[in-house]
Design a protein around this nucleic acid. Sequence first.
DNA 1: AAAGCTCGTGCACATATGTGCAGGGCTAGC
DNA 2: GCTAGCCCTGCACATATGTGCACGAGCTTT
Lengths: 322, 322
Amino acid sequence: MNELDETSESGKTGDALRAAHLYYMQDLTMDAIAHELHTSRSSVSRLLSHARASGLVDIQIRSPRDMPGRIEEAVLERHGVRAHIVPVPENASDVDRLERVALSAARILGQFFDSNMSLGIAWGSTMGALSRHLIPKQTHNSQIVQLNGAGNMRTTGILYASEILRRFGDAYGAHVQQFPVPAFFDDPGTKQAMWRERSTERVLQMQENMDVALFGIGSPFAEVPSHVYAGGYLEPEDFQSLSRDGAVGDVATVFYRADGSTDGIALNERGTGPSFDLLRATPRRVCVVAGLSKLPSLRGAIRAELITDLIIDESTARALLE
Amino acid sequence: MNELDETSESGKTGDALRAAHLYYMQDLTMDAIAHELHTSRSSVSRLLSHARASGLVDIQIRSPRDMPGRIEEAVLERHGVRAHIVPVPENASDVDRLERVALSAARILGQFFDSNMSLGIAWGSTMGALSRHLIPKQTHNSQIVQLNGAGNMRTTGILYASEILRRFGDAYGAHVQQFPVPAFFDDPGTKQAMWRERSTERVLQMQENMDVALFGIGSPFAEVPSHVYAGGYLEPEDFQSLSRDGAVGDVATVFYRADGSTDGIALNERGTGPSFDLLRATPRRVCVVAGLSKLPSLRGAIRAELITDLIIDESTARALLE
DNA sequence: AAAGCTCGTGCACATATGTGCAGGGCTAGC
DNA sequence: GCTAGCCCTGCACATATGTGCACGAGCTTT
């Protein structure tokens, strides 16, 4: 039998589906399932792993309506943002924190993205971590668009933007649109020129039609600098310029002040990220944040009304409310 | 702390929620969770059991769009009914079959019912089995309405209709409306009279506004007679009458012929089930079927266009397509 | 205040599940 | 037609999870 003919009646995926039914819906033990499928228990264990890993089994946590978390409620009321709190112990390291938020975020994202949709994504350490944990979900006619350039990435050990993009594309079976420009041009004039190119226009066009935007937050002045800043994108004088202009953070390499404004921040003239007006035109804008060091930048992003859904670790969420 | 104050931040449900997050979203081991929650591993195991049993964790199986089951597809095309196939081994006993379909059906039902909805339910062995496996799901302003009377039930060991109803009500936190009339009146005149009573009218009114109807199928002439027939509701002459009128099955004690028609079936004059016109006005009509003996009756119900969603065991579904 | 209850806990053991490893079948290349 | 390589299987063991039981805290009853 040709695997192209495979349906849920047979073949690996079919078996996995059937095993999942028996295990999760009918509460059979793996032993019993092995018997029904005429295979060994170990194979069933593997089949079920496969089913979970490939998104055949979808597990959601739903808090009762009459008992939503206090934090979620407070964040919604005070900041107008739907929060998704990720429980992480107080004493967790920042790395741990990021990893765990990314794990949860990857699962939640599956609920936001579907066929016929277009997803815009930034890149950075948060997005990188997230991309490693995506749960596959087959979609049709869907697209992943890169939000901001990253042409001259050179740090080793850090994910290339294209790698992040590819992972999203693979997980969702979506068409991937890269944005082949540097994160920052040296000469604003070059940017202007590039923006008139047909290939660039096409990307910008796609960004305008996004259904979901997904991004982390950059904190140029936090103790632990973000990806962008460590990556060698910015020169000392750029930092001075940012500092002078009062920038507190960035979303997709577009910088903003504590009050959410961006006008007059010089570096943005040379950056390639989407204007906030464009972002705000996207129906769902998901921001993933882990760690207290992002807090000041996060506040700015909230004021800028960039965020509709916030996936955040518990401690940071608590701090946000103070 | 008063348990009325409980939110997801603390208390049993809160802990369960948090444990579920850590276990299902972050893939921690129970040991690790026990440590984070400052409790023992066993408690975490119990917490997670609780979370699953009380519907805090919602597990769904989703077959990829590009590979729907052949059977589902064929049933939809040939009979215009969304099928939900429950895998059950060929050689399973009818009891097993019913139990397993009921288990799956109970979980699927949770996807169909929500706050502000009204659910009409029949009673019988299928519904009884189903009611034992319902997954709790808190809803607001929702109602459960009994579709047909069952006043004179007397067999022991079989669930009383009111018990079934109560279980649905408990599971969904819904208001329960019983229908306190016998399954069949002896005198059609009494039925007419009762139908003019305000209390009856209220029930009928609620039936008209149902969002979902849920029922099994009765097979009066199968080798293994259904609940209704074994329950002592019908006298030998009733069977003769049904046979004479060509009845092949019933839904909520309303009988129909192989072609789906009901007109002129004498017994229906004395029965208390909802007219098929009323049923067909309900947006979603879920039928649960297990076992080959129901097949002829099922075909009739399909012809009568009573069913929008069919939850059925695999073997019977296969047979339906022949 | 003592006795009796219920409930939740952790321990120790029973089960159930996950996984490294050594075949065996299949394919592709020679 | 042979052989190297890959993937899948089941076994045996390692790990993780489920559960009966006895105990103790908090609460009710007498």
